[in-house]
Amino acid sequence: MREAVSAKTVWRKRSKPLASVRSSRITAADLLLLGAGVVILFIAACAIVPGWIAPYSPTEMLTGSIMKPPSAAHLFGTDYFGRDIFSVVVHGSRDSLFIGFASVLAGGVVGGSIGALAGYAGGMVDTVLMRCNDILMTIPGILLALAIAGALGPGMVNIVLAVAISSVPGYARVMRSQIISIKGRTFIAASQSVGAPPLHIFWKHVLPNALSPLLVMATIGIGTSILTGSGLSFLGLGVLREVPDWGTLLSQGRGYLTVAWWICTFPGLAITLFVLAVNIIGDRLRDHLDPKKNASR
């Protein structure tokens, strides 16, 4: 009997490391998340220190290398001015990323504030704010951004405002629903029963618990904002600079698609990869912050 027990004990001790090894295996989702992080870090480095990555100046016109296909000397080829496409894409990432992050920050703050005020105040305030928000939600985001950008004219500030305003209704609706859900929970009623001021309850208990879905939405919204900004630039309502952003590059290269496909292909790939990477990060963040999935684990 002692030998049987000791053998069983030894088997348990040996099986625990095997179980821990199996649980620590890298899955395909982990590799996908790692790849998305690498893409985001690389594009962020391109926006922060483009001179360290781009082999040429984005305004340098190589007259002997006009519309050359991708090669070892020019990874993405050259355009009709002889500019190195890779260098232009690297330098153009700064404006594209600025539009994405600035519009999400502005839209999230404004929309979140409107939703928080409507959800926590309730009554007539909620009714008026949400009916105005519903009017904006009936207009597709890209059409609303297009109308605002067309009215304000091209420019960095104007395109950020156009993309930010078009995203406000979504943030307001999500924030309002979260505030209403948290406001009716037991710990809020307990704080009210001990005489805590409404503003104290809002800042200390309601708002911190309502920010997680808004953070996930903002993360995924960065990719959407870059797509919207690139679309406006493609239509000629973007940033007018010597170094174009990704959307402007697409617009400039569409006329040469049959003879020089690389001029607009690689800026389009840059937009696609960054948006895909941001969405992967946002999906993983949503899964991590979802209380239902965490409870089931």
Score class of each variant (00 low, 15 high):
A54R: 12
E3Q: 11
F76A: 04
I159F: 05
A118N: 01
I159A: 02
L289S: 01
R83W: 03
Y256S: 07
I165N: 06
V88N: 02
L18R: 02
K16W: 14
D126W: 09
S71R: 06
R12K: 15
R94K: 14
T186K: 11
M137A: 01
D126A: 11
C264N: 04
N133M: 14
L227Q: 06
G108I: 01
I85H: 05
V206L: 02
A54I: 10
V243M: 01
S233E: 07
S103H: 03
I114H: 03
L207Y: 05
R185L: 14
E242A: 11
N133R: 07
L143Y: 14
S113M: 12
F202Y: 08
P213E: 05
T265E: 06
A106W: 07
A162Y: 02
R173N: 01
G35V: 09
R241C: 00
S233C: 08
A47G: 05
V174N: 00
V194I: 15
T127S: 13
W11H: 10
S193N: 14
I142V: 15
N294H: 13
L31P: 07
I85G: 03
A189D: 14
R2Q: 11
L18F: 03
R12N: 13
G268W: 03
M130Y: 06
I114G: 00
V206A: 00
I201C: 05
A72L: 10
G282D: 02
F101Q: 00
L285P: 01
G108Q: 01
Q178M: 09
G195Y: 12
D84Y: 02
A162T: 12
N209V: 08
P267I: 04
A28M: 05
N279D: 05
P291L: 06
Y256N: 07
V157A: 13
G223L: 02
S20F: 12
K8H: 10
L276Y: 05
R131A: 07
L257P: 00
G112T: 11
F42Q: 04
G112Y: 02
M217T: 09
S15L: 15
I182Y: 09
K8I: 14
I66F: 12
M61C: 01
L250D: 04
G107P: 01
G37C: 08
K13W: 13
A73K: 15
F81I: 11
F81W: 13
A162D: 03
I182C: 08
M61L: 07
T228M: 11
N158V: 09
C132M: 14
Y171H: 09
R14Y: 10
V157D: 08
S233K: 02
I40A: 06
G141P: 08
G229E: 09
W11R: 15
S230R: 04
I53A: 07
S87K: 08
L105P: 00
C46K: 01
G123I: 12
L136N: 06
F98N: 03
I263M: 00
L235Y: 04
P208H: 14
T9A: 15
I114S: 05
